[in-house]
């Protein structure tokens, strides 16, 4: 059915595409789930809709309510789209060093941007949002890092689609941000098929951790802890900007125009493929390449692009 009454009906049911030609191991198949096909352009449409619908069910959202959320971009954009459709106001705490397109998209959907220091990364945005939420109890703070509707959206949506479309899956690879995708999908897959391995890919910590004054300023998302993340993950590996960009470019050779974190997830999938004898790896492409065109990631001199990527949040 290609006729819908609301754009929100288009969230989910994203395609899987075989990219095994990039596999370093002929006995390992690699497939990518293209979450950039969601109407807001990223995987975050799923938790955005799920968190808002849950808050409506719980009676936390009056018509015309104002929401507050820390986001490096995609969750903010997803929430902004849903809020526009449903008539809510949204304030997004956004680190100052995200790509310009993320900021523009938030404005497209009428969200208000509150800047947090870029040098503090997402950690800084989280910290500022939490203190604003305390000062303004009248704002609804859905807080993706601690909201069970975030992993549930992936348990009920992303994971079911993956298992339905690729029951032969042996390894699942995704980026680690809030951990919603990994917890939701990982829990579902291990319920259905306990031998499936779950691999997390994360960006290098960089400057944000330099700003920490003591270890108690560190942060582990509550949904990771409550979802048993430490028992669930089989591997957690860092992928740097150079590998991320190189693999993002390789995907474009297959006609797949994906964001830079997709290259990082693919680098993780390739590393996984090298360590196993045979299998079927599914990895998540969190978004398309559109929001990163200004970074010249595909066309610029690789060294210059890598240097710029180090200053930008792309996860």
């Amino acid at each position: 059915m290609a006729r819908h009454s609301s754009v929100l009906d288009l969230i989910g049911e994203t395609p899987l595409v075989d990219v095994s030609s990039l596999s370093p191991n002929p006995r390992v198949q690699i497939l990518v789930k293209l979450e950039g096909q969601n109407p807001g352009g990223s995987v975050k449409d799923r938790p955005a809709l799920a968190m808002i619908e849950q808050a409506e069910k719980d009676g936390r959202l009056e018509p015309g309510a104002t929401l507050l959320e820390p986001s490096s971009g995609n969750t903010g954009i997803g929430l902004a789209m849903v809020c526009r459709v449903k008539g809510y106001h949204l304030k997004v705490v956004l680190p100052s060093n995200v790509s310009v397109e993320r900021r523009q998209l938030l404005q497209v959907f009428g969200a208000e941007i509150i800047e947090s220091p870029g040098s503090e990364g997402s950690n800084g945005a989280v910290r500022l949002a939490r203190s604003l939420a305390e000062e303004h109890p009248e704002w609804v703070f859905l807080y993706q890092y601690a909201n069970p509707a975030n992993p549930r959206a992936h348990f009920e949506g992303t994971a079911r689609e993956i298992y339905r479309d690729c029951p032969e899956i042996t390894h699942f690879v995704a980026g680690l941000g809030t951990s919603g995708t990994l917890i939701g999908v990982g829990t579902y897959l291990k319920d259905k098929k306990p031998e499936v391995e779950v691999w997390a890919v994360e960006p290098p910590a960089g400057e944000a951790v330099d700003g920490l004054r003591n270890l108690d300023d560190g942060y582990v998302p509550p949904i990771f802890t409550e979802g048993g993340g430490e028992e669930l993950l089989d591997r957690k590996t860092i992928v740097g900007p150079r590998d991320s960009i190189e693999w993002t470019r390789r995907l474009a050779e297959l006609g797949i125009f994906a964001g830079i974190s997709t290259g990082a997830a693919l680098a993780g999938a390739v590393k996984c493929a090298k360590t196993i004898d045979s299998g079927v790896i599914v990895f998540v492409s969190a978004d398309g390449g559109w929001k990163y065109l200004s970074t010249d990631a595909w066309t610029g001199d690789i060294d210059a692009v890598v240097e710029r990527a180090k200053q930008t949040i792309y996860f």
């Binding site: 960006p203 910590a205 949040i313």
Partner: peptide, 10 residues
């Protein structure tokens, strides 16, 4: 050795 921080910190 690195402190744990919220994802997306780069």
């Amino acid at each position: 050795i690195l402190p744990a921080v919220a994802g997306g910190a780069h």
